[in-house]
């Protein structure tokens, strides 16, 4: 079986871990996120085993540990649809990521679609699509589009 490394990247508290939890086989506890800054899980999609690196979120105090992204076959950029600034941040995050690992297949998850505070503008979505990314409006809570996100990412990297 083919194995591929994929990384979940985004700002702090956008729901990366929740999205991952919804889809993968939990192997390690979430404590790893706060200790070494990454949690690794696995999932099988279309005969491919995804090794999902859930990288701790970026905030003002700690940048993303780019070392964890090296060797990734695909990236899932995750933003919080109720915090528009996290959607805008995806551009700068991607620039940083690209500098380190180059262009790799990427999908975008605008998470928390189930919340009434949803405030992503069509312009924001358009700007993401213009980069060639497929955008998913996900809800980790209700499981909406989560499988689609990982399946699409898997197809892109196969």
């Amino acid at each position: 079986m083919d194995k591929k490394k994929v990384c979940m990247v985004g700002d702090f508290s956008v729901g990366k871990t929740s999205l991952t939890q919804k889809f993968v086989n939990n192997v390690f506890s979430e404590q790893y996120l706060t200790t070494i800054g990454v949690k690794i899980d696995t999932a099988i999609v279309d005969e491919t085993k995804l090794i999902v690196w859930d990288v701790a979120g970026r905030d003002s105090l700690s940048p993303i540990n780019l070392s964890y992204l090296v060797g990734a076959s695909g990236i899932a950029l995750v933003a919080d649809g109720t915090r528009p600034e996290t959607v805008d941040d995806l551009h700068s995050i991607w620039d940083t990521v690209e500098k380190r690992i180059g262009k790799v297949p990427t999908v975008v998850a605008l998470n928390k679609r189930d919340l009434p505070e949803w405030s992503v503008t069509p312009e924001q979505i358009q700007s993401l699509k213009e980069r060639g990314w497929i955008v998913f409006e996900t809800s980790a809570k209700e499981g909406v589009e989560v499988e689609g996100l990982f399946t699409q990412l898997c197809r892109l990297i196969q």
Partner: peptide, 8 residues
Amino acid sequence: DSDAIGAM
């Protein structure tokens, strides 16, 4: 999962 351990 060995794959997860390897990655870890």
